[in-house]
């Protein structure tokens, strides 16, 4: 009796939650994906693929399936997972033409999967071949999609994975590419998407420069980071403070130190370091500072 009742209730729940369109199914799949319910997400992406009516919908379901393989297993992604992800990206790319806005996304993702696959490859020759394929895709991105968000994403991927040794030539090259990208941007105007990941590029270059002992570049790129727009309030506070400290203690740039101590005090007033910032600004500039007005 109880079993029947509970089964009926379960049936109600199931029928109530059934999705009836691609949008609903894809939304549920991404939701499960974001909850790290990879098996469920995979199943739902497959279902969504069957319901897809357009090329874009088909691509979305394919991207979901590939992401489950490439990112979903987090620390346990196998060579086979990457291989399968690459073939899914190929399937998606075969649906897209050159003008399609999703093409750079799939090119970038495929390149990333190939790069990871190359790292897992036991043979040097195979590894180099896979890396060469990835480089080929990145070249397409560089040549054909200069300011695209997915090219920006791929530039960061290349810098992050070039080498764990920040002094290594590959790492220096990859970070130089980030500098080149940022150098060509208008910090204030210009298309918003062109600058979408510029602040991250700047913070990465700053970190890379700092660990290589280049304090002038660290300050320069942290400043650029602040101009492009920090990703959160705590990150902004952190950048202001580091600029001021490095300028004061390493590059002996008193003007920059005072400016950023002041900004820290006025914009990050609730922060535990704000009084210190005020004191340092006053000592370095010889001027009294009024009360901070920001957070």
């Amino acid at each position: 009796m109880a079993a029947i009742a509970s089964s009926m209730l379960l049936l109600c729940f199931v029928s109530a939650s059934a999705a009836d369109s691609f949008e609903d199914m894809a939304a549920r799949a991404w939701s499960e994906y974001s909850f790290k319910e990879i098996d469920k997400a995979q199943r739902l992406f497959s279902e969504a693929g069957k319901m897809a009516r357009t090329k874009r919908e088909k691509c979305e379901s394919l991207a979901g399936l590939a992401f489950c393989l490439q990112f979903g297993k987090r620390n346990n992604v196998s060579r086979d997972d990457y291989r399968r992800a690459v073939s899914i990206y190929d399937e998606a790319l075969s649906l897209l033409d050159k003008t399609d806005d999703l093409r750079p996304f799939f090119l970038s993702m495929k390149a990333e999967a190939l790069m990871h696959l190359s790292k897992l490859s036991p043979q040097e020759s195979e590894s180099q071949e896979l890396l060469g394929k990835a480089a080929g895709l990145w070249r397409i991105l560089d040549d054909e999609y200069g300011a695209d968000v997915f090219r920006q994403d791929s530039l960061l991927t290349r810098a992050a994975h070039a080498s764990d040794d920040f002094k290594d030539e590959n790492s220096l090259k990859a970070h130089a590419a980030l500098k080149d990208y940022v150098a060509g941007l208008d910090k204030k105007d210009g298309a918003k998407n062109d600058r979408l990941l510029a602040s991250v590029m700047c913070s990465q270059v700053a970190e890379h420069s700092f660990l290589n002992g280049d304090f002038d570049a660290t300050v320069e790129y942290l400043k650029a980071y602040c101009e492009f727009g920090p990703t959160s309030f705590p990150m902004k506070a952190d950048a202001y403070f580091r600029i001021a400290r490095i300028a004061e203690l390493k590059t002996n740039d008193r003007k920059t130190a005072v400016e950023f101590y002041r900004r820290f005090y006025s914009e990050c007033n609730a922060n535990e370091k704000s009084f210190f910032a005020k004191t340092r600004a006053e000592e370095l500039s010889g001027e009294k500072i009024g009360s901070g007005g920001g957070r």
């Binding site: 992050a160 918003k192 979408l196 990941l197 602040s199 913070s203 990465q204 290589n212 990703t231």
Partner: peptide, 24 residues
Amino acid sequence: ASLKLPAAWENYLLFKNAYPKHLV
């Protein structure tokens, strides 16, 4: 997504850079 993607990247790099930082 435009707001979150850069923040996600920054968070990811914070972790990704930990090992290079250790090496340095």
